[in-house]
């Protein structure tokens, strides 16, 4: 067993917009997730976080690059092995309002994956459904209800129970809390942390809520326009970010603390994320970066280790601006 459960090398996912133009949603991204850890993935909308998560799960076919799950290259998996991979890797979706089939009861939703992957007798199946409902903080009374009878937080719990139903080892949490109220968010995050402890799960936690990501993740990756610009322990990302984009992103978080607020230095990004369709060569962030020089517009920087466990993709990171 290797150190990493999921490992992607040079992962690319392009979408053909029309004959001439290509949208590079994920562009040469390296990502490696250790067993039992939570890797947070942050960035603005359209930076390729979700595409990256879905490609890792083989929900999208990667354009190029390799993805290893438990040491096996997943694009070569066929038949039984592919089924086994899907059994091991699951997803919790963003919107609990649209990701549950309104015509199915909660127990049917949870059981659907079990029918494919685990051949259980009806009695075992029922027991397992009840067990899962309890594990996510619901009761067996919910089994025969429909999704519309549940609140947002309860639905998201069902979404998590559905993902857990086949006993996966890896779960991609794609913005699992962004559609929920603050107080409910805390409940769901606590639930995810507890389940991870109990079951040794590995998470890829995708979100744009940076303070939540910091809270739940061991390491955090920051994406900008399809490429990974910085990857480090969550402590390091938030206390000593090295990439200018990460620095701007962190300083933009409004902090719910009255005294700290005035003393924090504020860095504002000008403009908006440019289109990922046929981006110019060089560093993706160069047009908005105030440290950009000629080389930034010509050559794409590589993600390199600048400190132990701290990877940054920036030409100017070593002769640092901070």
């Amino acid at each position: 067993m290797g150190e990493y459960l999921v490992e992607a090398k040079n992962l690319c996912k392009y979408f053909q917009v029309d004959r001439k133009r290509t949208l590079k949603a994920v562009d040469h991204v390296d990502i490696a997730i250790r067993r039992g850890e939570t890797l947070g993935l942050v960035g603005e909308s359209g930076c390729g976080k979700t595409t990256c998560g879905r490609t890792l799960l083989h929900l999208y076919d990667a354009t190029s690059g390799e993805i290893y799950f438990d040491g096996k290259e997943i694009s070569r998996l066929r038949g039984k092995e592919l089924l086994e991979f899907k059994h091991q890797a699951q997803i919790v979706f963003q919107d609990p309002y649209s990701s549950l089939d309104p015509r199915m009861t909660i127990s049917e939703i949870i059981a659907e994956g079990m029918d494919v992957h685990l051949k259980l007798s009806p009695k075992e199946k029922n027991e397992r459904i009840n067990e899962l409902l309890l594990a996510v903080g619901l009761t067996d009374q919910f089994a025969n209800r429909f999704a519309h009878e549940l609140s947002g937080g309860q639905r998201q719990r069902v979404g998590i129970a559905r993902a857990l139903a086949v006993d996966p080892s890896f779960i991609v949490c794609d913005e699992p809390i962004s559609a929920l109220d603050v107080s409910i968010q805390a409940q769901i995050v606590n639930l995810l942390i507890r389940l991870q402890r109990e079951r040794g799960l590995t998470y890829l936690f995708i979100s744009h809520d940076l303070s939540m990501v910091k809270h739940i993740s061991d390491r955090v990756g920051v994406m900008y326009l399809g490429s990974m610009v910085e990857l480090a322990s969550s402590e390091a990302i938030f206390s000593a970010p090295k990439h200018p984009y990460t620095q701007a992103l962190i300083s933009a978080i409004p902090v719910a603390d009255f005294d700290g607020e005035e003393s924090r230095k504020k860095e504002r990004l000008e403009g908006e994320v440019p289109s990922p369709i046929d981006p110019p060569p060089g560093c993706r962030f160069a047009p908005r970066c105030r440290y950009a020089t000629d080389i930034c517009h010509k050559e794409m920087p590589k993600l390199e280790e600048v400190e132990r466990g701290h990877l940054v993709a920036c030409h100017h990171c070593l002769n640092n601006h901070s």
């Binding site: 609140s151 603050v182 107080s183 968010q185 805390a186 409940q187 995050v189 606590n190 942390i193 303070s211 939540m212 910091k214 809270h215 739940i216 993740s217 061991d218 969550s234 402590e235 938030f238 978080i253 902090v255 719910a256 603390d257």
Partner: peptide
């Protein structure tokens, strides 16, 4: 208090149990 408490401050310890308001 509950509202203030359910937001993780950037300074809190990671993976600590967040305060969650029960019920609806």
């Amino acid at each position: 208090w509950a509202l203030l408490n359910s937001v993780p401050a950037l300074a809190t310890e990671n993976k600590q149990e967040l305060y969650a308001l029960k019920g609806t």
